[in-house]
Design a protein around this nucleic acid. Structure first.
Lengths: 349, 349
DNA sequence: TATTAGCACTCAGATAAAATGAGTGCTAAT
DNA sequence: ATTAGCACTCATTTTATCTGAGTGCTAATA
């Protein structure tokens, strides 16, 4: 048989790959044949294990840092592990307890809740925790209020069904009084409430203009709403617990540290990467090169979208080295995103 | 003469200390006598230099990492350097240009401005940049608006003279309509505008209650204002550019890294440290042990308050290792805080 | 045919010894 | 007061050696 040809692994090879990834994740050191067969009670001689490892290496799942070193998983190896070999890890009672409490306790103030969820993700996983707040586009408006800041400056306050508050300043060219603004607020609230930002931008405002015809009274109100909505899709990103990753021994390597900091410093880039997968409805793992950025080296990103209704509005996850405890991180991210979804849905009823 | 007695340094000793601190700041390596006398053209033999260094060490300004190593400044040495020996460094045209542009350009949105100032401080100094936003206590209110979030939940929006916006949620026990809230907003705005949070808390609200007597109409409005003002002194802190410090060679030392991250992770603690010096009207340098936290090791913090009127309302600065370019960092922080003060004063006219 | 024992070989990492060099303090002469 | 000279110190660098866990390959075995 041509060993370098990619094929599904047989049972024994699978078992070896699984155990090897597991061992490497916990020890961080290349895995050699002798100690490995012992520790994991394979009923095999080291020699046979070497043969198996050789095959796995030929197929691209393993590599050696140097000749005469043990093997470590390649990105492809991790990928296969995550896709095909991952045991379903049950979060411990404590862990799911922590998650639930963390999500529920901070319900009062959504922004703080997101930060604390990022912290929780980091604490439980011991990697960096990431939360992307809901994109405004799919946020459903409950209430709008306009506040005068200055002669030509107005603050628009959007209150979403979920209780998020979004401030946006707009500059207009006419002078209005706060009384006008109060009337506008009432008008806009009654007309726009129940619609998402996106729907309003795409349709509702247009309809409204038609309906108003050439009655001038509320034209300015519509203008203001339009201005405010224009660039309102900004999504905040919270990253917490980077110190967890900085303390890892592999971070002593210049290259890895650089790579990690590069991602952490480039928040917009990171949002962008995460948002590529906005339509996925399950946990998304990006392993090493799959992050598709030449500056990123040896990092993995695990994310999952959370949703309101059947709309994915935001995402959360963890970020760390490729040598990551996927077995734990994946269900953590999964569970958390579901908890957040369910909370948001309850709130937006 | 008793060498270990502290006394003012003579001219030559001063020159040596100044040059030595300067040399150590740039090289990061203990400074020895031979190369030092050459490089800085002291007309002295290395032996004499050693004598001088010995004296400076006896007086506590220098220390040796180990016998037979060169000298490095102690915290006390840095302190003396900063207090007495610092040349007035003129920011370059470019640098002050950057500062001014950075402060002015973002004027539109104060929160973003503060973040970008923190970034700028970091870029120019190459340490971490810190900004503490204005304390609400001394912020003068221009306008108040109340928005209904839920049956018993109200969002209060304070607009300050400087254009800062402060959101605060309060929970009340009576049901009110948005129309009520509009009337309340008008009432509160006219009664409270022009006063600072502190004045309102301490006096204005009380006076107002007296004035209202047992007219019930606006009692609830006053209640809401009181609730909102209650815990409204929170001051946001922005830290940017920590990667600049993480990349420094000394951060390879576990202990220093830990210490640095400890401060960065403890934002409330950091605010607290900075706020200890809220009454200072000049640049404040905290060197090493002066930070007075057992967990902080080998770090320096340079801050300066910025003010509105003659009230210090917030602070900004840089944070890095004790081996810091004080000569540049001090005027940078100074200049920036003045620029921010002047901007805020212009805005609050 | 799959497994294993045996063996020669590799190589990172640890340990030890030696050489280097930039530094010191001290003393005596200037 | 300054300096030359000298013996001494010690982190760092260099070099050599050793060790141990690893490998691949081959031939014997089940």
């Amino acid at each position: 048989m041509n060993k370098s040809e990619k094929r599904l692994l047989n049972e024994r090879e699978s078992a070896v790959l699984r155990a090897l990834v597991y061992e490497y994740i916990s020890s961080g050191k290349p895995v050699g044949s002798r100690s490995f067969v012992q520790k994991y009670s394979f009923n095999l001689s080291p020699a046979t294990m070497r043969n198996i490892m050789f095959d796995l290496e030929a197929m691209g799942f393993l590599m050696q840092p140097h000749t005469s070193a043990g093997r470590i998983p390649t990105d492809i190896g991790y990928r296969y592990y995550v896709d095909s070999l991952l045991d379903t890890y049950e979060l411990t009672i404590d862990e799911s307890q922590i998650i639930r409490e963390d999500v529920i306790r901070k319900e009062v103030h959504l922004e703080k809740m997101f930060i604390s969820i990022a912290k929780m993700l980091s604490n439980v996983s011991s990697y960096a925790g990431i939360v992307l707040t809901p994109r405004a586009d799919f946020t459903v408006i409950k209430y709008i209020e306009l506040v005068q800041l200055d002669l030509y400056e107005i603050l628009t306050v959007f209150v979403s069904r979920t209780g998020m508050i979004l401030n946006k300043r707009v500059t207009i060219s006419e002078i209005v009084t706060q009384d006008d603004l109060h009337r506008f607020s009432k008008f806009l609230s009654s007309e726009l409430s129940g619609y998402s930002f996106q729907m309003i931008k795409e349709k509702v405002l247009g309809d409204l203009r038609v309906k108003l015809g050439n009655s001038m009274q509320f034209q300015l109100a519509v203008d203001i709403a339009e201005l405010a909505l224009n660039d309102c899709s900004e999504q905040a990103i919270f990253i917490e617990g980077i110190e967890n990753v900085l303390h890892l021994p592999e971070m002593l390597e210049e290259r890895r540290l650089k790579s990690f900091l590069y991602v952490i410093e480039n928040k917009p880039k990171l949002s962008q990467i995460i948002n590529k997968y906005v339509n996925e409805n399950h946990v998304n793992t990006l392993i090493g090169v799959e992050i598709e950025d030449e500056n990123v080296y040896d990092c993995s990103l695990i994310t999952s979208n959370y949703s309101i209704g059947n709309m994915n509005v935001g995402a959360l996850g963890v970020f760390g080295p490729t040598r990551m405890d996927y077995e734990k991180a994946v269900p953590l991210v999964d569970y958390t995103s579901k908890a957040v979804s369910s909370l948001l849905n309850r709130m937006s009823k």
